[in-house]
Design a protein around this nucleic acid. Structure first.
Length: 223
DNA sequence: GCGACAG
DNA sequence: ATCTTGTCGC
């Protein structure tokens, strides 16, 4: 699975901001997809001492939530972490991981904001536009926007507002737990995005004893 | 100028 | 993101 749009990632901060403004015009904020058979979750881990990144993509069967395929890819960070320019740091390794994938997902859940971004083009939008696939932005903390605390029950939402515009939703995936920030990535409405996050969040649970481990980039513990 | 600031 | 210590709730 490879990008439909291939642009340079070797950009200056200013060029990156301009590219975001250009690509933001390609974002579709309505539901635009057929049946969702496979859903992918993506994440990137860091090694702050070696400046290495490891991207992971896990594809699940949308109905049973069984794991269909898992791929990882490591890469050298070539763009600093700058709030608002997050995708220029994390997308290169993620694209490398997607290139290894044999089962293309019909929807991707991202670990970063989508439309809830200063230029309305967070990582989820960038990934969605580049692959032209439905994506959902999902953040543990917000980049910007104000909101009233939603009811404490699972499923409760409150609009996240910036400059008078609803840019996403604060959504509680568990009763009594802090909300996460859901926003449109590409080709999906905010309402549908929240339904998917709710549908996925309570059902997929790792066994209590499971501990996720990552094969070390260099093997300090084995030397 | 000061504070905020996805991961 | 990663790291670490202290605290609260079931």
């Amino acid at each position: 699975m490879n990008p439909k749009i291939n642009h340079s990632w070797n950009l200056t901060e200013l060029q990156a901001r301009h590219l975001q403004q250009e690509l933001a015009a390609k974002v579709t904020r309505e539901d635009q997809f057929e049946e969702i058979q496979r859903v992918a979750g993506v994440d990137v881990a860091y090694d702050k001492h070696s400046d290495q990144l490891v991207a992971a993509v896990v594809v699940l069967d949308a109905n049973t939530l069984e794991i269909v395929e898992t791929v990882t890819a490591d890469d050298h960070a070539q763009f600093p972490y700058i709030p608002g320019l997050f995708s220029f740091r994390e997308l290169p390794p993620l694209i490398k991981a997607f290139a290894k994938l044999n089962h293309s997902p019909d929807l991707i859940v991202c670990d970063g904001q989508g439309y809830a971004h200063p230029r309305r083009f967070g990582l989820a939008c960038h990934l969605g536009v580049v692959f032209d696939i439905p994506t959902i932005g999902c953040g543990k903390t917000k980049l910007l926007g104000e909101y009233q605390a939603p009811d404490t029950k699972r499923g409760a939402t409150a609009p996240l507002i910036d400059n008078g515009e609803v840019i996403g939703n604060a959504l509680r995936t568990q009763t009594g737990i802090n909300p996460i920030y859901v926003s449109i990535g590409h080709r999906i409405s905010l309402e549908t995005a929240c339904k998917w996050i709710l549908n996925l969040s309570p059902k997929y649970r790792l066994p209590e004893t499971t501990r996720l481990t990552c094969s070390p980039l260099s093997s300090p513990l084995q030397s």
